[in-house]
Design a protein around this nucleic acid. Structure first.
Lengths: 111, 111
DNA sequence: TGATTAAGATCACAATGTGATCTTAATGTG
DNA sequence: CACATTAAGATCACATTGTGATCTTAATCA
């Protein structure tokens, strides 16, 4: 069995979770990270769906944090990326880089 | 109307078509390009399906080439990437780069 | 007690990915 | 000439992933 392949949005969620780290990665900041960086609009619901699917594949683990003494301070579902999840990210990166090779001159400034 | 968003495999097909150029881009070498670069195995049928979907979205145009005087020299369906297709590729690139920002230190060597 | 806030969850449907299977049109060969 | 071989195209069904609508829950505030 090779590494799991992840879809486009699944990859974005994995990357956001890695950046935020286990103490800060839960749906709300994941949404924000993706929105701010990519400029696209993301629904929380989509992140939950995706988190469930990633967890089913064993690429992440989640658990409920402690409730906080703030208005609306409901327990958060926190996320860590498991080693197979990191592998999937690395593989996606390798694929993307391989496919981009030599295209800069064809497409021009890809920024 | 923003730029069309493309899926993961759609992006690979667009990139292969750009690399090959209008004279050489048809299903067989597209399959080969993706296989060689990414190491994954690709069915021709999947490329046809994807080409149809990309054409429906106006991201590529296709037309039948001339038959060739070789064994099995059937006419090829040749592909060019239209300007909106190039835009979609650029946008995908920008998104990927934005999401990768700062992760090198977290993930380590992503090669 | 009711309002407000932050967060979690489910569902259905749309879009995309993938394998199985088949057809077509060209040349080669006994 | 009939059949084999080869390169290529095409369709279909089903699996996986993406997305919006809608709802619930648990906390504090007024």
């Amino acid at each position: 069995m090779g590494t799991s392949r992840v879809g486009e949005f699944e990859l974005l969620v994995l990357l956001a979770a890695l950046r935020l780290g286990p103490a800060e990665a839960y749906a709300v900041p994941i949404v924000e990270d993706i929105e701010v960086r990519t400029g696209r609009s993301v629904r929380r619901a989509n992140v939950y769906t995706t988190l469930q699917r990633l967890e089913n594949k064993g690429l992440i683990s989640t658990w409920m944090g402690e409730p906080r003494a703030e208005r609306g301070g409901k327990a958060r579902r926190l996320v860590t990326v498991n080693p197979p999840g990191v592998d999937a990210v690395k593989e996606a990166a390798a694929e993307i880089r391989a496919m981009w090779g030599g295209l800069e001159t064809i497409i021009g400034d890809i920024a």
